[in-house]
Design a protein around this nucleic acid. Structure first.
Lengths: 249, 249
DNA sequence: TTCTGGATAGAGGTCTGGCCACTATAGTGC
DNA sequence: GCACTATAGTGGCCAGACCTCTATCCAGAA
C-alpha cells in the first residue's frame, strides 16, 4: 500500500460543509475586492453558477451571513453588503438580550467580593504588586488630557483581573475573564460620567489599601461598595440616555 | 384619494418571510418548552412536516439560528440547542487546566451561597416547586436498594442546579452548570461514604425549608454549611484512598 | 407635459423529490 | 465476549420548477 494517505496530507478544497465553504468564499470576495456597504452581490443564480454549486446551498450561506448582520437580502432586488452599524447593533442587541445589566452586576459582585477577600488573605506579594502596578497605570492614564476612555476601560478591567489573579483561584479568574468580556462588549464605560472617574479612583485605592494591609473583611466591603457604585452609575447613565431619546422623539 | 393608508394601518397576516416565521417559531418552542442546551430538536423532516413547510425553508431557518449560535447542527445526528456563548467560553477556558479540589469547592461556595439567598428572596414559586421536586426525586432514589450512585450524583447536581435557576440570574446558572460538569467528571461522588447520604439529605432539607420560608440568610447559611461538609467528605475520602495505596504499595 | 397603469425582466421565496454521507446501534459471526 | 457488518435515521446537497416582489419602461389618458 501507499504511505499514510490521511486527510492531513492533501486537502485542496477548503474544509467543512459546502455551505461553510461558500460562506468563506463570499467573505473572501467581500474583503479582497473591497466591497463597501450597500454594494450589490451577484444574484443567487449567478453565484451558484460561478461557484458550481446549487442555489439552495448559496441561499443557506447567504442566510447565515444575513443572521450575522454582514449581508442584507431584499426581495426582488438582490443581496447587498450590510452597514457595519447594523452589524454592531445586532451583536449588541444579542449580548444585551442574553444578560440584563442587573444580572451582570450581580454576578460581578458574586465574583469580586470573595476575590478581594481571598487576595487580602493570601498575601501573594508578586501578585499584589501587579495589582498595585495596575492601579498606577490607571491613575496615570487618568491624568492625561484628553482622556482616552477606551484605554481607561481596559485598564480598569485589568485592575480587577489582577485582583482575582491574586486570589489564587483559576476558576474564579476564568469566570471573571468571561464576565469582563460581556461587560465590555455590552456596555459603554461609566468612567466618562462627570466625576465618576475620580470617585472610581478612590474606591480602587480603598480596595488596594485593604489588600496590602491584609484586611480581608475591609477588602470585601470595599469591593462590594465599588461594584454597587458602578452599577448605580451605569443605571443612571442608561436612564439619562432613554430620557434623551424621549425628549428628542 | 383615500385616507392615509400607511403600512402601519393594517398588517394582519404574520409578517416577514416564511423562513423568518419558522425561525421565531423555533425560538418560541425553545423558550416556551424550556429546552436546555444539548437537547435535540425534531429532525428537519419532522419540523417541516409539522409546520407544513418544505425542508429547504426549515434548513434556512436552522442555518440562521446556527449562525447566531443558538443551535448546533451535527451531521447524522440532528439539530441541538447550543450552549449560550458565555457558558461555552467558560467551559473552554475551564476544562483546559485541571483544578485542585479546594479551588472547585471554593468556587462552588462562591456561586451557591448567593444563589440560595436570591432564590429565597425572589420566591419564584414554579421554580421553587422544581427545587422541591428535585429534592423528592433525590429522596426517593436514596431509599432504593441497591443504591445507584451514578444516578444519585446526577440527582444531587440537579437539585443544586434548580436552586440557581430559582435565583433568576442566567449567568450564575451557566457558571454553575459548567462547575457541575467539572465536579462530576473530576470527582467520585461522596454520597457513597458511610452515612454521608443521610447527612446530605438533612442539609438539603434545611436549604429547601429556608427557601420555601423565604429566609434568605438561613438559606445562605445552610448552603454554605452544605458545601463545606461535602468538601470535608471529599477530602476525607481522598485521604483514605491515598492511605490505602500507601499500605498496599 | 404630466400622470397613470400595464407589461416586462430579473431578483429573491418556496416547493418537490431525489440521492449522498455520516452516525449510532442492533445484530451477526467469529 | 468481541469485532464486524447491516440498517435506519439524520443532515448535506442537488436539479428544476413555479410564485411573488421590485424596478423600469412605455403607451395612453388627463
Amino acid at each position: 500500500m501507499a504511505v499514510d494517505d490521511t486527510v492531513t496530507t492533501w486537502q485542496p478544497l477548503g474544509q467543512g460543509t459546502l455551505t461553510d465553504r461558500i460562506r468563506s468564499e463570499i467573505l473572501r470576495v467581500l474583503t479582497t475586492r473591497g466591497l463597501s456597504p450597500g454594494d450589490r452581490l451577484p444574484s443567487e443564480r449567478e453565484l451558484a453558477a460561478s461557484l458550481r454549486v446549487s442555489r439552495p446551498s448559496v441561499r443557506e450561506a447567504v442566510r447565515s451571513l444575513q443572521a450575522e448582520g454582514r449581508l442584507v437580502v431584499r426581495h426582488g432586488q438582490g443581496v447587498f453588503v450590510a452597514e457595519p452599524t447594523a452589524q454592531r447593533a445586532l451583536r449588541e442587541s444579542m449580548t444585551r438580550l442574553d444578560h440584563s445589566l442587573s444580572e451582570l452586576f450581580a454576578m460581578r459582585e458574586v465574583l469580586e467580593v470573595p476575590a478581594a477577600r481571598w487576595a487580602a488573605q493570601r498575601q501573594d506579594l508578586p501578585k499584589l504588586e501587579a495589582v498595585q502596578r495596575a492601579f498606577s497605570d490607571l491613575e496615570e492614564a487618568l491624568q492625561q488630557e484628553p482622556r482616552d476612555y477606551q484605554r481607561l476601560q481596559d485598564l480598569d478591567a485589568a485592575f480587577h483581573l489582577r485582583i482575582v489573579q491574586a486570589a489564587g483561584n483559576r476558576l474564579l479568574e476564568q469566570s471573571q475573564g468571561v464576565l469582563n468580556d460581556l461587560l465590555q462588549t455590552g456596555l459603554q464605560t461609566t468612567l466618562a460620567i462627570e466625576g465618576r472617574a475620580e470617585r472610581s479612583r478612590e474606591e480602587h485605592l480603598r480596595i488596594l489599601t485593604a489588600l496590602l494591609e491584609g484586611d480581608a473583611a475591609a477588602a470585601g466591603r470595599a469591593a462590594q461598595a465599588h461594584v454597587r457604585n458602578v452599577r448605580r452609575a451605569a443605571n443612571r447613565r442608561i436612564a439619562e440616555a432613554s430620557a434623551r431619546i424621549d425628549n428628542e422623539g
